[in-house]
């Protein structure tokens, strides 16, 4: 299986000397194409950092990050921006939409920024998938939180990106709206052949993924293929017992 995105020996260090924080400490991971990967771990374990670096929003201190076969470390700000626009979709926890643009304009924003017209049939199909046809000309402030996140997913998919990165996309939603958003991400992967990487704290959300990666203290400590909510929950509970010790038991790292 080819990787849509990958990081190798990724390290990210904030500050220096006494205040040095190793947010990522030698992480290597492939995000397989047409796969749905969830990243979990305790707060502060480096999940967001990993995602930002893999998506070209942030740069690694050492190691390499690639989207397809493009190495991100050598790119200029302009090249990174274009790469994000053309090959990556984003869904953040909140504040995903530009308040002055309508739903439709928000969805086509990355394409519009590139100056090339969006594929109308594709946008049309997306709109139906996210179920917002009757809301296309509304402003984000007129939508519920769940609807806003659905628009964000549609926006992330509008440019047919290689990878969609989502950082706690359901963090602010109730379980029903959350399930809708997760369902959308799942369909994007399984029906449309996209690749999705999602950071989450919610075992139920993680269970929508094909595989769950567990981070602790900036290291990849475990991976779980074919997750279920119960097994993820159990695995998470294990962290709570000996979270800081995770680093000292590397033998636990799965295959």
């Amino acid at each position: 299986m080819t990787a849509a995105a990958r990081v190798v020996d990724a390290a990210k260090v904030y500050g220096s000397g006494e205040t040095e924080v190793r947010a990522l400490d030698g992480v290597s991971v492939d995000f397989p194409a047409a796969g749905f990967t969830a990243i979990m771990g305790p707060s502060g374990s480096g999940k967001s950092t990993l995602m930002h670096c893999a998506a070209g929003l942030d740069t690694l201190t050492s190691g390499s990050a690639r989207i397809g076969d493009v190495e991100l470390s050598g790119l200029t700000d302009k090249q990174l921006t274009v790469l994000r626009r053309e090959r990556i979709g984003f869904v953040f926890q909140s504040f995903n939409l530009v308040p002055t643009l309508t739903v439709r304009e928000n969805i086509t924003l990355p394409r519009d920024l590139s100056g090339r017209p969006a594929d109308p049939e594709w946008i049309d199909a997306l709109v139906d998938v996210v179920g917002l046809r009757d809301r296309l000309h509304h402003r984000p402030s007129e939508l519920s939180g769940g609807q806003q996140q659905r628009v964000a997913v549609a926006r992330a998919l509008a440019g047919r990106p290689d990878v969609v990165f989502a950082d706690e996309p359901t963090g602010n939603l109730d379980s029903r709206s959350g399930a809708e958003v997760l369902g959308l991400l799942g369909r994007a992967v399984h029906e449309m052949g996209r690749t999705a990487v999602m950071v989450t704290h919610d075992p139920v959300a993680a269970a929508h993924a094909d595989e769950v990666l567990f981070l602790a203290d900036g290291r990849l400590v475990d991976r779980m293929p074919e997750p279920t909510a119960e097994r993820v929950l159990d695995r998470m509970k294990a962290f709570d017992g000996r979270a800081p010790g995770a680093r000292r038991t590397p033998q636990e790292v799965g295959p």
């Binding site: 302009k78 274009v82 626009r85 953040f92 995903n96 530009v98 924003l109 990355p110 926006r155």
Partner: peptide
């Protein structure tokens, strides 16, 4: 600020 950050994240270049 947040909105500008979002625009940059989804592909607005600095010059745009």
């Amino acid at each position: 600020t947040r909105e500008l950050g979002l625009l940059r994240a989804v592909g607005q270049t600095r010059s745009q």
